[in-house]
Design a protein around this nucleic acid. Structure first.
Lengths: 205, 205
DNA sequence: CCTACCGATCGGTAGG
DNA sequence: CCTACCGATCGGTAGG
């Protein structure tokens, strides 16, 4: 075993806390995260766990950021090589569906849960979640605009309406999978998205 | 003032607890409901508040039932006189949109929040929320089936797919209103629903 | 319905 | 990173 600097140890500890925190928060909620529970799960003391963050809210914010990194890598990175516009939009819808159908976190999509939990709780956590939601929204809309400009979507397409309806299908898929445990919702989400885009949408293998 | 029996007093106390509990839960979550906070809000002692219910879980279950009554009265009762099938389905979509856009609870739709919060927490609360979600789903699907039988929707319409997409539009509306505070989502939800049904959908006055 | 109280757990701090 | 500890609050009970 090679020796490890205490700096690298600290970074790995921090990453482990954030990864486990996101997993727990996906089930119990970000507000339901407790320092004592996380510390017990990871075999640490409460003060040792809190140390790198200082207080619970900072821990929550960094858990959100860590989950955003995972989300981005799961969904956008695999399709970054697709041509901008309709091809990339259809591909990202496919990887979005795959993300929702895959056990990335035990409680399903971290961001759908966090958005619902904090939509009415003003403060830094809500602001951060909203910031990521806006970024996601603009990214989708940008591809939709490009698809219209390319003539790959009808000229009278309203990109806002399209993004709104795609988002609805993703939210319906999440609810059907998590609450109703209805795996048949995966092809239904793909069919709905495919009809909106005029091209097939499929979760990648 | 007419005298009141202690029985009627108790019933009014119980109703006040459940109404306020649903309002608080719409913001803080059903799990975030605390007996001490509810008691303080209502000027009662903790033991007095807990008395009619016995424990917190029973209180949660009865809050869900009270919210379900409100939901039913808000959405289905106003359209019960519409002809079954497409007319009633379009009308219920309109009152659904109105419900989501109206400040019925300070935290938005109680059931969307509760479904998200408890979708991964096994137990009686989840079972009850799921039961109401199933009932809602079957009610919509029944009207869709009737609309197809009446020839008011194309014969190849898949009622499951239709209900899935209508639900998605409602979920997207809720998220847009609560998280993004985007009132423009109301006409977008109506447009999406109207396109699915082939008839206009409008929130009633 | 109340007061008074229980053990457990909360977020967080002192000191090392 | 740890132990030891803080005041506050949790769900719930005893007794009236």
């Amino acid at each position: 075993m090679s020796p490890r600097s205490s700096l690298a140890d600290a970074a790995r500890t921090r990453a482990a806390i954030l990864a486990h925190g996101a997993a727990v928060a996906s089930v119990e909620g970000l507000a339901g995260l407790t320092i004592g529970r996380l510390a017990a799960d990871l075999g640490m003391s409460k003060s040792g766990l809190l140390g790198p963050f200082g207080n619970k809210e900072t821990l929550q914010l960094q858990v959100v950021e860590a989950a955003a990194d995972v989300f981005w890598r799961e969904i956008w990175e695999p399709v970054a090589d697709r041509p901008a516009g309709l091809p990339r939009l259809a591909a990202v819808c496919g990887s979005w569906v795959r993300h929702l159908a895959r056990p990335v976190y035990p409680g399903g999509c971290f961001f759908i849960a966090a958005a619902s939990e904090f939509d009415d709780r003003p403060g830094p956590v809500r602001d951060l979640v909203l910031g990521y939601a806006d970024r996601w929204h603009r990214e989708l809309r940008g591809q939709a605009l490009r698809a219209v400009a390319d003539g790959d979507l009808p000229a009278d397409t309203d990109p806002e309406q399209l993004v709104f309806e795609l988002t609805g299908l993703a939210l319906a898929l999440h609810q059907a999978l998590r609450l109703r445990q209805d795996a048949g919702a995966v092809p239904r989400a793909c069919q709905g998205m495919g009809r909106l885009l005029g091209v097939p949408v499929r979760p990648p293998a």
